[in-house]
């Protein structure tokens, strides 16, 4: 994925990686380190918490924990790559695009996700995908990363049927 991002950005000159809280931040960090070890340059990176840009506050209610948002300097002229763990409905990415626009006007924004699980509700596609997994709406895709969860793991969790639960 790091190589693909380099190809996409045609080098590291204006590249900035921005992870979406929380697992996306760890993934962005890892990709940045990989690129840095290969290319010997420092990649600006940041974190974005999109909670305040969600479109479902009215229905889902406030999320108790809002993570920090940190944007590395001026985004004008940069090629920003948004990094997240799972791409599903596309609503998170929509919120992230809105939020980024409030911080500046990057030259270009791309999207990099570890897992694309389908099920899009908005016309949003990733530029770099780690793996594509076919899923249905009731299922859950969990990505665990060592930094937060103690181990690296991607699991597909099927819902327990209502009959089986009783």
């Amino acid at each position: 994925m790091a190589v693909e991002i380099l190809e996409l950005a045609r080098g590291t000159d204006d590249l900035a990686l921005i992870g979406i809280q929380r697992r996306g931040v760890e993934l962005a960090e890892r990709i940045a380190k990989l690129i840095e070890s290969q290319e010997g340059v420092v990649i600006p990176r940041g974190a974005l918490d999109i909670t305040l840009y969600r479109d479902d506050l009215e229905t889902v209610g406030p999320k108790p924990v809002i993570g920090p948002t940190h944007i590395p300097g001026d985004l004008a002229g940069k090629h920003v790559v948004i990094v997240d763990d799972v791409l599903y409905t596309g609503r998170t990415v929509r919120a992230a695009l809105d939020e980024l626009a409030d911080f500046g006007r990057p030259q270009r924004i791309s999207l990099c996700v570890l897992i694309d699980r389908g099920g899009r509700e908005l016309p949003i596609q990733a530029d770099v995908v780690g793996a594509t997994v076919k899923t249905s709406p009731g299922e859950r895709v969990d990505v665990l990363v060592e930094e937060l969860d103690g181990r690296d793991e991607v699991s597909l969790i099927r819902p327990v049927r209502a009959e089986a639960a009783t």
Partner: peptide, 17 residues
């Protein structure tokens, strides 16, 4: 936000990842 009656109406709608 967090109106329970609206949450019921929106049930089935996916929560963004």
């Amino acid at each position: 936000g967090g109106k329970p009656e609206l949450a019921d109406a929106a049930k089935g709608a996916a929560v963004p990842d």
